[in-house]
Design a protein around this nucleic acid. Structure first.
Length: 551
RNA sequence: GCCCUCGUAGCUCAGUCGGAUAGAGCGACCGCCUCCUAAGCGGUAGGCCAUGGGUUCAAUUCCCGUCGAGGGCACCA
């Protein structure tokens, strides 16, 4: 019996009780059925009596005493006890609990997916780095978390597009082009240009591919360098992200927005909505109508579009592609954009909450306890590909995803490189490998557990009970992670699950020893192992982390 | 000055849309492999959940103030 099924039964029992008692009270919204922290409090606990106390005008304990017997009558429920201020603690029959293993094995890769966000079309934009250099650690956090959020949203039933907005237009790109050109001519790189070895590498690669480039007229040459450097750098970013298992459904070019007149089109739509005005020769968007600090300029007095204009156009474009929710992942250094982005939605005639901005604290890097300052222009950078080279994709992704994004994250390069065995990712992966090994050994012994009779009620050991309960929580964890946009919940859950499995493994022998015969209990345990392996696999999949069969 | 995020064990951090004794890893100490992966398991030690108020049957969680840390307030990109 799944928690969802039990919740429905409890709800039914409560409604029946209310009718019977002649109380015209609705089921309170605070009604919860959850897994209590302590096993002593049963498999599940509900606060229904506490929540009902006020509307019903009765003491919680009295309600609980009257309600508990009704809950105890639900098929599959072994006991319903009153505890504390009025909680009802529910214990399932081991038969009802044990069925979970079979349900999970049958669901396979689908276990954990659900319909919590069915019908939603969600656009997730993240990283959106300038194509003027390699991706560094600041981007890395979003590469891992953004991708995991998208995976979790999909698992919850949403239709998702992941997008990377390329700022391939404007002053920064020009400075980048000028820097590469200067490097190609062995000239000093301009003061406000981009420094760093990668500029020289790009310059060399461009000259090798097209030696005649240095003979072009200066204006033409500058554009040629800029375009070639841009193409190479973008490709490099794309390759690194692919290696990092972060994929995008759309790489949206700012330049393309301008070339296709999408910017003018967006401006036109906002004008129709009546929030655009002119002042001092510039064109403004009245974002202060919707909570922004100040109005924002769309077109400067000199006729140039601002970045904000393209951002706005991109938003309109997303809405025209029928996304009903646009999620932006931004670093804490961009939190000033939150109100204006939401205001853009409102100015477009949408609801404020159709834009959701997740602000992530920046990743602080230390090396042996000493802070490493990141500065792209100074060339002092720790890049995504360097991190991956040092610790591998699994450890890098996992250690970035396992923390909520609004908590500051400090990664010590020495720790993450020298002490990889301490990384929880290995703990989780080890549990998976361990189970894979047990299942492998079973196969070698000729045990075809899938075709042997599974008796759910035999899984009655305390540790089995604990494991089954934890497994049954997985769909709720995934749904919660999706709804709250917090994929770290999946990682923490997996760590718990791995720990519970290890404890089970420690107490419960799965395979027959020596020449012993296989028992029905061991068959049931093999199903339980298979269910656990599947759940860990599915969870790691959501994080983009591999689930090895051997370690 | 205004705004955002944060303040939990020695260290790195979970938990917090209010719930029953506050958790993990690392570090310290003590145990467990003739048996399915010891990258594992069990145990000990370590806390005024920054601080002062408020709301509530119940606050680490919600609200306000204070202190501390980080970040932001462009006709920049």
């Amino acid at each position: 019996m799944t928690p969802e099924a039990l919740a429905l039964c409890v709800r039914g029992a409560v409604l029946a009780w209310l009718t019977e008692s002649g109380l015209s009270v609705d089921l309170p919204a605070e009604f919860k059925l959850e897994r209590p922290k302590s096993r002593e409090h049963g498999d599940y606990a509900t606060n229904i009596a506490l929540a009902l106390a006020k509307p019903a005008g009765l003491p919680p304990k009295a309600i609980a005493e009257s309600l508990a017997p009704k809950i105890a009558e639900i098929p599959g429920v072994g006991a319903a006890e009153i505890a504390g201020p009025g909680f009802i603690n529910i214990r399932l029959d081991s038969d009802a609990l044990g069925q979970t293993a079979q349900i999970i094995v049958a669901a396979g890769a689908e276990f954990g997916t659900g319909q919590a966000l069915a019908g939603r079309r969600i656009n997730v934009e993240f990283i959106s780095a300038n194509p003027t250099g390699p991706l560094h650690l600041g981007h890395t956090r979003w590469a891992a978390v953004g991708d995991a959020i998208a995976r979790v949203l999909v698992a919850a039933g949403a239709q998702v597009s992941t997008e990377f907005y390329i700022n391939d237009r404007g002053v920064q790109l020009d400075k980048f082009g000028a820097s590469v050109m200067a490097a190609a001519h062995d000239q000093e790189i301009p003061e406000d240009g981009y420094q760093g070895a990668y500029i020289h590498d790009l310059a060399a690669a461009i000259v090798i591919a097209r030696p005649s480039i240095k003979e072009l007229p200066i204006e033409e040459q500058f554009i040629a360098f800029r375009e070639a450097a841009y193409a190479l750098q973008l490709k490099q970013q794309q390759q690194v992200l692919e290696q990092f298992r972060t994929s995008f459904d759309l790489w949206a070019s700012e330049r393309a927005l301008h070339e296709s007149n999408a910017v003018e089109h967006g401006l036109e739509l906002l004008r129709e909505q009546g929030h655009v005005y002119e002042l001092d020769g510039a064109v403004w968007l009245r974002t202060t109508d919707f909570g922004d600090d100040k109005d924002r300029v769309l077109v400067k007095a000199d006729g140039e579009y601002t970045y904000f204009a393209s951002d706005t156009a991109y938003y309109v474009n997303k809405r025209e592609r029928d996304f009903d929710l646009c999620i932006y992942l931004l670093g804490a250094d961009h939190h000033g954009y939150v109100n204006r982005l939401r205001a853009v939605a409102a100015c477009n005639g949408d609801q404020l909450d159709q834009v959701e901005v997740l602000i992530g604290q920046l990743v602080k890097i230390t090396r042996g306890g000493e802070e490493v300052k990141l500065s792209k222009r100074a060339g002092n950078i720790v890049t995504l590909d360097e991190l991956v080279d040092e610790v591998g994709v699994d450890a890098a992704r996992y250690s970035l995803i396992r923390y909520p994004v609004d908590s500051p994250l400090t990664l010590d390069l020495e720790v993450i490189t020298l002490r990889t065995n301490d990384n929880p990712v290995f703990y989780v992966q080890y549990a998976h490998a361990r189970i894979a090994s047990v299942l492998r050994n079973a196969a070698e012994l000729g045990i075809d557990w899938r075709n042997l009779h599974f008796i759910a009620g035999l899984l009655s050991h305390e540790r089995e009970n604990e494991l089954l309960g934890a497994l049954a929580e997985f769909p709720r964890v995934v749904a919660g992670a999706a709804e709250l946009r917090e994929p770290h919940r999946v990682a923490r859950y997996l760590e718990d699950l791995a720990s519970i499995y290890h404890r089970f493994y420690d107490s419960c022998r799965v395979l027959p020893r020596g020449d012993e015969d296989l028992t029905p209990e061991q068959v049931a345990r093999l199903w339980l192992c298979a269910a656990t392996r599947q759940t860990i696999f599915n969870g790691l999949q959501l994080l983009g982390v591999s689930a090895p069969d051997r370690m």
